[in-house]
Design a protein around this nucleic acid. Structure first.
Length: 552
DNA sequence: ACGTGATGACTCC
DNA sequence: TGGAGTCCCTCACG
C-alpha cells in the first residue's frame, strides 16, 4: 500500500510534466508548492493489494516508485485521477485510434523497460554509493539519554500531589537565551561532556599523552619508497569515528607512536580526543567544550605532549593540560582569533593572528601570558606560519599576497622581507615547509595550490609550481588547505571534492604521488587533513565531526 | 567582481 | 510520524 509520501512524489512528477518546458532542473520545493491539495490525496487512486511482499516491502517500494515515475511520465495529465490504465479504458470505452496507439506504446515501453535491469541497477547504485556512516565515537545524544531515563509516569498515576507549575522568569534582554560569546576565563576544569557527570579522565589518557615520540625522524625517502609507504596505509571501519558533534575546523595528531591518538575541533568550540585503540568514553572518544565558536587551529606541544593548544574564533587561545586536567588561558582578545604558529622549539612562544591582520607574540612563561607586541598589517589575515629554522621569520597569508616578515621588527608599517605574488583570489593557507623552510605551500580560492621557493628570501619569492585543484567547497565545508608531510619535506596532502571521495598527496613539482580512496570508509569530503609527525599515518576530518585515520 | 553570510533535502530510527 | 542526523559541486547581495 503506497504511503502518502509516495503519492506525493507521484503527483510531483506529474506536475513537472504539466509545467511548460523548463530549462534546467526545477527545484523540488518550488514544484511542491504548485501541487493542489486535492490531487495529493485523490480518493480515486486505487491502492495496491496489501497482501504481497511484507518482508521486501521497503526495497520493493523504492523500485516501484521509480517505475511509477517512468510510467506516469508516459501519461497525459488527464490521466492523473486514474493512474490505472486498464480501468480507464473500461470506464471510458471508445478510445480514439490515437489514444489506443498511445496505450500500446506505453505497454511496449513498459515491456522493454522491464527487460532491462535499470531499476535493480539504480537500486544497487543507490546502496553502494551511500553506505551507512560509521557509528563509532559519539553516540546520538538523544538515544544515549533516553536509554538511561526511567519510564515516564504521570504524578496522577503515582497518586502524588500535582506540582505547582510556575512560569520561568521573563528573560531580561535579548541575549539571555543566546549562547554566551565566550567561556569564562580559565583555568576551566577538563570535564568530558560525553561521560556521566562526575566522571574523571581515564588515567590511561594521561599515560598516553605523556608519551612523546619514540621514533627518530626518518631520513627523507626516495619518492618510489614514499609512494610505496603511502600505498600501504589503509583505513578500516575501526579507524573512523565521530569525535566532535559538528563540522571539523581543525585537527591534529598527537606525537605518540604506540597508538593513533588525535584531536579535532568543531564549529561550536568543542574539542574531541580520540584514541583509536582505547575504549574509554565512546569508542575511545572524549569530548570537551573549551570554546564557543569554531576552533580554527590546534596543535599538540612537541616539547610537552600533554599540552594541546587550541584557538577559537571566539577570541580565546587555551592550553589543555591533561596532567592537571584543566584548560588554561594562553591568550584572550575581544577580536576573533584566526590562527597561531609555534615560535620556539619548546612551544612556549607563539605567534597568534586575528582576522584583521593583527599578529601578537605570546609567551606562555610570562605571568598572565601577556603578549609581547602587536602589529597591524592593515590586511586581512588567513594564516600565519613561522619559519622552522629561522624562527624570527613568519609568513602571513594576506588577501592576495603572502608576506614574510621579521618578528624582530614588529612595528607599525614594517616592510616584508619577502612576498609571494600571483594569487588572483583570497588565500586560505600558507605554510613553510617543515624541515628547512625552503618552500612555502599556499592554497588559494582561485583553484590553485602553489609552491614558492623561499630559500633565498628575496624581495619576491619565485613561484615553483602551481597545481590546479578544486577549492570550491561551497557553504557547508571547511576550506581545503594543503598541508606538508612533516616526514617528507617536499610532499603534501590535500583533501578533494572529487568523486569518489579521496585524499591526494602531491610532490612539490606537482606530481601526484598517491590517492587515498576507500569505497566503504571514505565516503565524504575530508576538508581537514594532516600527516602524523613520525608514523606513517594520515588523518582527515569531515563536515559531520568524523575523523578518519589511514595507517600502515 | 569578490567576499560574505545565508539551508535544506533526504534518510533513518 | 516527527525529530535528529547527515552532509553537501549555491547564490544573492552589497
Amino acid at each position: 500500500m503506497p504511503t502518502t509520501r509516495e503519492k506525493q512524489e507521484e503527483v510531483e512528477v506529474v506536475v513537472q510534466e504539466m509545467t511548460p518546458q523548463v530549462e534546467g532542473p526545477v527545484r523540488r520545493s518550488s514544484r511542491r508548492t504548485l501541487v493542489p491539495k486535492r490531487l495529493r490525496y485523490s480518493p480515486e487512486e486505487t491502492p495496491e493489494e496489501p497482501t504481497i511482499k511484507q518482508q521486501r516491502q521497503e526495497k520493493h517500494n523504492k523500485i516501484k516508485n521509480q517505475k511509477k515515475k517512468v510510467d506516469l511520465k508516459e501519461q497525459d495529465p488527464s490521466d492523473i485521477e486514474n493512474s490505472d490504465g486498464a480501468q480507464t479504458s473500461e470506464e471510458y470505452g471508445g478510445l480514439s485510434a490515437y489514444e489506443l496507439e498511445r496505450l500500446e506504446n506505453i505497454r511496449q515501453n513498459k515491456a522493454f523497460l522491464s527487460t532491462l535491469d535499470i531499476f535493480q541497477a539504480s537500486e544497487e547504485l543507490k546502496w553502494s554509493s551511500k553506505p551507512k556512516p560509521s557509528q563509532r565515537g559519539l553516540m546520538r545524544s538523544q538515544a544515549a539519554q533516553s536509554e538511561s531515563l526511567p519510564a515516564r509516569r504521570s504524578l496522577r498515576l503515582q497518586n502524588k500531589e500535582a506540582e505547582v507549575l510556575t512560569l520561568p522568569p521573563e528573560p531580561k534582554g535579548t541575549l539571555t537565551y543566546e549562547q554566551p560569546l565566550k567561556k569564562p576565563p580559565g583555568p576551566l576544569p577538563m570535564i568530558p561532556v560525553n561521560l556521566d557527570e562526575g566522571s574523571k579522565l581515564p588515567s590511561q589518557l594521561v599515560e598516553l599523552c605523556s608519551e612523546s615520540s619514540t621514533e627518530q625522524v626518518k631520513a627523507k625517502l626516495h619518492l618510489k619508497e614514499y609512494r610505496s609507504a603511502l600505498s600501504h596505509m589503509k583505513i578500516t571501519p575501526g579507524r573512523v569515528a565521530k569525535v566532535v558533534k559538528d563540522r571539523i575546523f581543525s585537527a591534529a595528531f598527537h606525537p605518540c607512536t604506540s597508538s593513533l591518538f588525535m584531536a579535532a575541533g568543531d564549529k561550536w568550540g568543542r574539542v574531541g580526543l580520540w584514541s583509536v585503540e582505547s575504549d574509554w568514553g565512546h569508542d575511545g572518544v572524549l569530548l570537551f567544550e573549551p570554546h564557543t565558536r569554531p576552533v580554527g587551529c590546534m596543535a599538540f606541544s612537541t616539547a610537552q605532549p600533554t599540552h594541546l593548544l587550541s584557538l577559537s574564533y571566539d577570541g580565546s587561545l587555551r592550553c589543555m593540560d591533561v596532567e592537571k586536567a584543566v584548560f588554561n588561558d594562553v591568550y584572550d582578545t575581544a577580536d576573533g582569533l584566526k590562527t597561531f604558529s609555534f615560535m620556539s622549539d619548546d612551544c612556549l612562544s607563539l605567534l597568534v593572528g586575528n582576522w584583521y591582520g593583527e599578529v601578537a607574540v605570546v609567551d606562555r612563561r610570562t605571568p598572565g601570558n601577556t603578549h609581547e607586541s602587536l602589529h597591524t598589517l592593515d590586511q586581512v589575515l588567513r594564516c600565519v606560519s613561522v619559519h622552522p629554522l629561522q624562527k624570527q621569520y613568519f609568513a602571513v597569508a594576506e588577501r592576495k599576497t603572502v608576506s614574510i616578515y621579521d618578528s624582530r621588527y614588529l612595528k607599525r608599517n614594517i616592510q616584508p622581507v619577502s612576498q609571494l605574488r600571483g594569487h588572483s583570489l583570497s588565500i586560505s593557507s600558507a605554510y613553510f615547509s617543515p624541515c628547512t623552510g625552503n618552500r612555502v605551500l599556499t592554497s588559494c580560492m582561485d583553484g590553485n595550490i602553489r609552491i614558492y621557493d623561499t630559500s633565498a628570501l628575496t624581495s619576491e619569492a619565485p613561484l615553483l609550481t602551481a597545481i590546479r585543484h578544486n577549492m570550491n567547497t561551497g557553504r557547508w565545508l571547511t576550506k581545503l588547505s594543503a598541508m606538508w608531510d612533516p616526514k617528507q619535506e617536499d610532499c603534501f596532502v590535500v583533501g578533494s571534492m572529487a568523486l569518489p571521495r579521496c585524499v591526494q598527496v602531491f610532490h612539490e613539482n606537482g606530481q601526484l604521488q598517491h590517492t587515498f580512496k576507500d569505497d566503504e570508509n571514505l565516503t565524504t569530503v575530508l576538508s581537514v587533513t594532516a600527516f602524523h609527525p613520525t608514523r606513517n599515518a594520515l588523518l582527515g576530518g569531515n563536515a559531520s565531526g568524523r575523523l578518519h585515520a589511514f595507517s600502515d
